[in-house]
Design a protein around this nucleic acid. Structure first.
Lengths: 102, 102
DNA sequence: AAATCATTTCGTAATTTTGCGAAATATTAA
DNA sequence: TTAATATTTCGCAAAATTACGAAATGATTT
């Protein structure tokens, strides 16, 4: 008799966030936005990050879809910032995972 | 003139770890191993996790390849435990990422 | 030696991800 | 109104991921 479980919502949510963090370009963006809680524009990022414009745009979209960033339109630019509420939730989940590490 | 940068080794390493954490089954395994620094066997896990034996084995292999777990052979079982050294490094990287969160 | 047990590897199919350039959108400037 | 600017969406190809069952491996028991 098997005891297969349905994985918890916390695990699933965290996996979504870990997955979206699992690409160097996206992680770079998150790191940049988290340092001094700054914001940035797609046009600034494209000069720093090793992918083209459309690819960068896709990465931003994924981060947004996962709820880790948000984009305020500030024509003709779009200003991207962290979604601070979810960022705080993510911190709690990751801190908990690592709580017993040295 | 573009200023495309080569992303840092820390970002790359962290992305590898985040990526491997980005699957509910693998995250479940890591969580289980990190809680009370326990170890476990593939055979125990297969009853808990919603995938078959061979798929579980593949996930364990990926976690091992990424350096987050290690498997000691203890015939006829294989005992999987966290790779504590890398787990500690991962903790530092993730803590740093979230340091400015609320 | 044969059967059994725990686990992995192989082969394969379905799906997702990543990346690009071209075209589209939307706003501002000329 | 046309041109220019910032950014996204579309269409597509290549590569990676996920999952499974069958077969293989390696140790142990009969």
């Amino acid at each position: 008799m098997s005891k297969k479980i349905e994985l918890s919502d916390d695990i699933k949510q965290m996996a979504v966030w870990a997955k979206v963090m699992g690409h160097p370009t996206r992680l770079y963006i998150l790191k940049k936005l988290s340092e001094r809680n700054s914001c940035c524009y797609s046009g600034d990022l494209v000069d720093e990050v090793p992918v083209g414009r459309s690819t960068l745009s896709q990465h931003l979209k994924e981060l947004k879809y996962a709820g880790l960033i948000q984009g305020e339109t500030e024509p003709p630019f779009i200003k991207y910032c962290l979604n601070r509420e979810n960022w705080a939730k993510a911190k709690i989940l990751f801190n908990d995972l690592f709580k017993n590490a040295i």
